[in-house]
Design a protein around this nucleic acid. Sequence first.
DNA 1: TAGATTGTTAATCGATTAACAATC
DNA 2: TAGATTGTTAATCGATTAACAATC
Lengths: 204, 204
Amino acid sequence: MKSDLPSATVERLPRYLRCIERLPEAQQTISSGELARLSNLKAAGVRRDLSYLGTFGIRGVGYRVKELNDQIRHALGLTADRPVAVVGIGNLGSALANYTGFGNRGFRIVGLYDADPSKIGTSLGGVEVRHISRLPDDARTTRISVGIIATPAGAAQQVAAMLVDVGVRSILNFAPTVLQVPEDIHLRQVDVATELQILGYYMS
Amino acid sequence: MKSDLPSATVERLPRYLRCIERLPEAQQTISSGELARLSNLKAAGVRRDLSYLGTFGIRGVGYRVKELNDQIRHALGLTADRPVAVVGIGNLGSALANYTGFGNRGFRIVGLYDADPSKIGTSLGGVEVRHISRLPDDARTTRISVGIIATPAGAAQQVAAMLVDVGVRSILNFAPTVLQVPEDIHLRQVDVATELQILGYYMS
DNA sequence: TAGATTGTTAATCGATTAACAATC
DNA sequence: TAGATTGTTAATCGATTAACAATC
């Protein structure tokens, strides 16, 4: 039974992971101060975040990099195997299909789906693109933990409903639209226009 | 002189915009309750957010859709013209270059850059891909407000430094790496692996 | 008027930060 | 020991929410 981490902490753990992965091989330990500098956060916040994972820092020394890495990966559940399906194999979906950064984080692309007949049968990152109508059948034999929606906005809600229907409980939506899903479904939204608008606000 | 909005409010305004853009033509007004339902937020929060923009709601009726749209767009500064450069024209960069959702939000792609000679000279969304070495010269004649980094992780920090060098003060980074930029530069990060890891935490 | 809905008050909640005793 | 750094306390800060008077 995992104890709950504050959501702000959960959202920062992947960033710590990014930072410690880039440390030189030889570096054995890292202090909260250095990790704060690398991650553009503050040392007190880093220590608080890590303290939720347990007390494994060494006073006067810092955190052992290897142990820190293990603790964060364990807290995030990156040891699990998470089959991912991508729906919508345009430029964005293709970028996702070819992205190699999922593997060492427990995510594995098991299905690529599109509605465009000209794309069916092509292969990306070793996975064949199949017609979206095959998704329900495929889901019956292959568990899908996460659905990534990379379709145009107009198709996204329908795709989301289909994913929920076949038992997917976590959805990452890249389509520029606000989705309605049952409240027990985990949904995250990545939206370029939104990010630009937020940047825009702080520019003026 | 614009009064500061709480950052949590700024991050929600684009979502409200998305929701009201999809309303039927005929709908003249919308209540905080309905907007909350559409945006998956709560009515009290919607009212508080909108109250920062002024008091233009009508008690017993709701908000006039047209005025609401104007107020949000004005608050976000979407009336400004914001020239955008995209660096890294792989699958992701191509998706961004072809994305048509920027125009009506004041963002306009004025430059596409890559280091790969085979891409130079091709055209995407009516803009020619130029070699990254041309960026400094181009920036001298064409103002660039926002730089979008869509390169591999290994090149991202160098590109960020170059953007800062040529006077870009707002950066949207899609490369899976934590960037170091001067503190007066506005930086936002979009990271698929991070989003998946956060989803992953809540799955287990 | 009666019903609906805003704008805001006040309470609560959660996140951040500085500071420092504990301890390597 | 002396210096460094953690883990945590306590204060502060900012965000959320329910509730309701104001008012259309």
